[in-house]
Computed example of a mutant assay.
Amino acid sequence: MRLDTLLARASQRLARAASPTARLDAEVLLCHVLNVDRAWLYTWGDRPLDPWSHARFDALVAARAGGQPVAYLTGEREFWGLSLLTGPSTLIPRPDTETLVAAALARMPAEEGELLDLGVGSGAVALALASERPGWRIQGVDCNPDAVALATRNAERLGLTGVSLEVGDWFEKLEQRTFSVIVANPPYLADDDPHLAHGDVRFEPRSALVAGQRGLADLYYLIEAARAHLLPGGWLLLEHGAEQAEAARRALVARGYDAVTSECDLAGHERVSLGQRPA
């Protein structure tokens, strides 16, 4: 069967399975099977697919039709221009989180400094920042050993040597260390949030998604605890849900942070709130 015909049929199947990006999903999966880019598919759509590749592609399409995330099926996802390995031990890097990277970079103007990424996951934020600020020393922490192992593999593949990664529960192993910038994308969904029943989120680790106090518990904890680990004038930046910015700002102000504000993602939702420890 020709590649373009095969893609059309796979796209129809995924559309019937309610994938919002059916054609893109099919193209990404076929590119993964053939180890080519999408431009190659457009150029050589009249080529036939060998039986082994056809069977492998069909299996991936069936898994995607069952709801499995494309990033888990291919084992990778692009974030901030970096190709990252992914796996079910971590959240899938999303464009919304690039808002956190951009906001942090705006507060990392010096040639060197120290930054802490809490809940490092696949390493997406820490490695994006390391790629842009090679003079900075970046510490990543995650309570999940599998996540730290995956982030370490990503750092090695990308040749980003300025990143240190370790297993730990938030600040527990950092003793008295202080940083110029602290960033985090903590769990921020309530345990009954309807998003948990839809899309890729169904397959991602619940421990990285759900927090108490209607999703605000970890945000409140980090706002409280981060002050002891920020240098004077240092910044705390937190990603959160689209309706949590006001609560995050109130908590930052209450704990004495200056210059408290929120920044929007590409969809116009307030996605990151931040504050500065007084100098």
Rank of each mutant, 00 (worst) to 15 (best):
Q244A: 01
A254H: 12
G241V: 00
Q276M: 13
A247E: 09
A248Y: 05
E243L: 08
G256T: 05
Q244L: 03
L252I: 03
A248V: 10
T261V: 14
Q244N: 00
A247C: 08
G275V: 03
Q276N: 09
S262T: 10
A251E: 09
L266Q: 08
H269S: 02
V253W: 14
V260A: 05
D265A: 07
R249T: 07
E246Y: 06
H269C: 02
D258M: 15
E243K: 08
E243A: 10
L252G: 03
S273C: 05
L274G: 10
Q276Y: 07
G275W: 01
R249E: 12
V272H: 03
T261Y: 12
Q244Y: 00
G241H: 01
C264A: 15
D265V: 00
Y257T: 04
E246S: 11
Q276C: 14
A267G: 12
T261P: 11
G268V: 02
L252R: 01
S273L: 04
S262I: 04
Y257N: 06
E270D: 13
T261C: 14
Q276P: 08
A251Y: 05
H269M: 06
R250H: 15
S273H: 06
A254M: 11
D258P: 12
R271I: 01
G275Y: 02
V253F: 13
A242I: 03
A242S: 10
G268M: 01
L274H: 07
V260G: 06
D265L: 05
H269K: 07
D265G: 05
A248T: 09
L252H: 05
A267S: 13
A242C: 09
Y257H: 07
E246I: 05
A245W: 00
R271F: 01
C264G: 11
S262K: 05
V272L: 03
G256R: 07
A248R: 00
E246A: 13
E243F: 00
V260E: 06
D265S: 05
D265C: 03
Y257V: 03
A259K: 13
Q244S: 02
R250T: 15
G268W: 04
Q276V: 10
G241I: 01
A248L: 07
C264P: 12
C264V: 13
C264Y: 11
A259F: 11
Y257F: 11
